[in-house]
Design a protein around this nucleic acid. Sequence first.
DNA 1: CCCGATTCCTGTAGGC
DNA 2: TGCCTACAGGAATCGG
Length: 271
Amino acid sequence: MPELPEVETTVAGLKRAIEGQTIVSVRFYRDNIRYPLDKAWIARIEQQCIARITRRAKLIIMHLDSGCLLWHLGMTGSLRVSASGEAKRKHDHIDMQLADGRLLRFHDPRRFGYLKWFANLDDLFASIAHYGVEPLSEAFNADFLYQLSRNKKQAVKNFIMNQCVVVGVGNIYACEALFLAGIRPQTACGSISLTRYQQLVEAIQQVLQQAIAQGGTTLKDFENAEAKPGYFQQSLAVYGRAGEACPRCQTSISSLKLGGRNSFYCPRCQH
DNA sequence: CCCGATTCCTGTAGGC
DNA sequence: TGCCTACAGGAATCGG
């Protein structure tokens, strides 16, 4: 599920809703999601104020007065703030009760998401030191992609979905950005020119910014911190549209598997 | 080193 | 209706 725009949307909602709140009690409803949930963390988290909430890649970072929390929503995870006493649903795995009575609740049917506690931010960032550049930062530019891709045969779609290269771009936005840039997803990344990488950088930034502005993409079950869906799915040009008409030239959209992931493109607009 | 395949898990859609 | 299979937004890990 959540790629960068969905995580950004969730973080924006959480900032509004719970920054400055104190966590009074924590409950783990199971002892692991993707990774183990250590019960020893509970005492470290309780009575801590959530001073700041930020995003790095597809991760949500909660800066506590002492220590910090790192959340990953995986494919089906959501982090919502609900009224006190709201009934627990199936697949609700973690509750954090706030001082004003509301509840921060982590829900994740497939349990590919995770929570980790760290004593300090240095340790947290050390755990994700292998991550690549932020796509909406200055460091993400045509030169960077061009240099890093030389002599590589990897398909460009897999290249831009590699979190060690650039973070936050998942299957949906990779397909959409390649369509906007007019590049076929299976093109070897090492054979793409600097000029075309310039177009790709602009396309990735444009698609992510538009998706953020629309509150993300809700294909199936994404909901933000206020349990509201996103609207960017209405703007998808190729993702999930195999056999439908290309919005630019009316040619039938094609699909193929790349790195095990379904990939969609227009055979006429993309080369 | 670079790839693709596999793996974690549940829900859902589609074929029969 | 029910049973079975394939597939889904992520990403670490394994093996060729």
